Amino acid sequence: MTENWLGRVLELEIGPVAHGGHCVSRVDGRVVFVRHGLPGERVRAEVTEDKGGSFCRADAVEVLDASEHRVTPPCPLATPGGCGGCDWQHADPAYQRSLKAAVVAEQLERLAGITRDVVVEPLDGGPLGWRSRVRLVAGRDGRAGLRAHHSHRVVALDACPIAVPGTLDVALAKRWRPGTELETTTDGDGHTHLRELSTVHGRNKSRQLSGGLAVQHAAGRDWRLDAHGFWQVHPFAADTFAQLVREWAEAPRGGVAWDLYAGVGLFASVLAEQVGPDGRVLAVESGRQAVTDGERNLADLPQVSWRAGRVEHALEDAPKPVDVVVLDPPRKGAGRAVVDAIAAGSPDRIVYVACDPAALARDLATFADHGYSLTDLRAFDAFPMTHHVECVALLQ
Score class of each variant (00 low, 15 high):
R26D: 10
V31E: 14
L12E: 11
G82D: 09
R57T: 08
C86D: 08
V291A: 07
V270S: 00
K320W: 04
P93Y: 00
V31A: 14
L10C: 06
E295T: 13
D226V: 12
F230T: 02
K174M: 00
P74Q: 11
A60P: 00
R153H: 14
E13Y: 11
L168E: 12
V270F: 00
S210D: 11
P319N: 08
R310T: 13
G125S: 00
F241H: 04
L99P: 06
V284P: 01
P319F: 04
V215R: 12
P302R: 07
F236H: 09
Y372N: 00
R143D: 09
A112W: 09
A262T: 04
A290I: 03
I350L: 12
H193Y: 00
F267E: 05
L157P: 11
E285T: 07
G190A: 08
N204P: 10
V9A: 13
D92H: 14
G371F: 09
L374G: 03
Y352E: 05
A214P: 14
R177C: 08
D239T: 04
S132H: 00
S25V: 07
V137H: 08
E295A: 14
D381M: 13
V233I: 10
S67M: 06
D381W: 11
D141I: 11
T167V: 01
G82Q: 11
L213M: 11
V291M: 02
P76T: 11
G145S: 10
P277R: 06
L111D: 14
L157W: 01
L395M: 10
K205V: 03
V325C: 14
G211E: 02
A237H: 10
L168F: 02
L209R: 09
D226C: 03
Y261F: 15
S269E: 14
A368D: 02
D87V: 09
T199G: 14
D323W: 01
C23K: 01
R175E: 07
K100R: 07
R296Y: 08
R30S: 12
V275H: 08
R224V: 11
G52M: 12
L157D: 07
R35C: 01
D87R: 03
S373P: 13
S67C: 04
L77W: 07
G265R: 02
G229N: 00
L271I: 06
Q396G: 12
D293Y: 08
G179T: 06
R30M: 04
W5G: 05
T366K: 11
L99N: 03
V284G: 03
A91C: 00
